[in-house]
């Protein structure tokens, strides 16, 4: 019994040494994680529903301030990125690594594009003084102030998820290239994909709630 062996024994558990590999178990864990994400946004959806039911007119009025063109463009960008993501996964499952990497790169670039558009949208609002905590927003009727607070909270939380997703993509990109994620072990890429689709899914709901309300 050498020190190395003990190390290997401990360090290897849950990785590959004496312990099993269980793709379906990992996928179960991933889905459970997605549920928590869903409920995290769920709290905000609940707040949105309550305040919209209390003062719908203010929501309609405030929504006119938002730039519908940018919102719809971003929807198209995200939906497309979901497509390239799923193509990346299926390419790897078929063993086509270079196509998988190309599709993953496309997804990454599309998400950059999403964030850039988001940045212009937010900064335009910011320059108009529409941002939580500003005098301007406090001067608005209460319902409109709540609308903008919700807008920033929900798109902000969504934006954080986009950033996390991009970091995850960068990591799996490196691993696919090095070959530690491959046709036989593609779980990690698949889970990043699931996560990315969830990010997309939430945006699908944000679009009508904010940009198409007026």
């Amino acid at each position: 019994m050498s020190a190395d062996h003990a190390h290997a024994l401990e360090a290897g558990r849950g990785n590959d040494l004496p312990v099993h590999r269980d793709d379906e178990g990992s996928k179960t864990g991933m889905w459970l994680f997605l549920f928590t994400e869903l409920l995290l946004f769920g709290g905000l959806f609940l707040i949105y529903a309550v305040y919209r039911s209390m003062d719908g007119a203010a929501f309609h009025h405030a929504a006119e301030e938002l730039n519908r063109t940018l919102g719809v463009t971003n929807t198209v960008v995200l939906l497309t990125s979901s497509l390239t993501m799923v193509l990346s996964v299926s390419a790897l499952q078929r063993g086509n690594r270079s196509r998988s990497l190309a599709m993953l790169t496309a997804t990454f670039l599309l998400s950059c594009c999403f964030l850039v558009i988001k940045y212009f949208e937010w900064s335009a609002k910011y320059h108009h003084g529409i941002f939580p905590g500003t005098e301007h927003i406090h001067a608005l009727p209460a319902g409109e102030g709540l609308f903008f607070s919700l807008y920033f909270m929900m798109t902000g939380l969504h934006g954080i998820h986009v950033v996390i997703g991009m970091i995850a993509m960068a990591i799996v990109f490196a691993k696919v290239r090095s070959g530690s994620i491959n046709q036989d072990r593609h779980g990690a890429l698949e889970y990043v994909g699931l996560y990315w689709h969830l990010v997309d899914l939430i945006w699908v709901f944000l679009l009508p709630l904010f940009y198409l309300t007026n």
Binding site: D22, V76, L83, V86, L87, Q93, H186, L207
Partner: peptide, 27 residues
């Protein structure tokens, strides 16, 4: 490991493109 690591069921890419088109149309 029973049953955990079967080869995945890979859908054709054309289907994904079709879904994507559908999503854009619905949008």
């Amino acid at each position: 490991t029973h049953g955990g690591n079967a080869r995945p069921h890979v859908l054709p890419d054309g289907l994904f493109v079709g879904i994507w088109v559908g999503l854009l149309l619905l949008t």
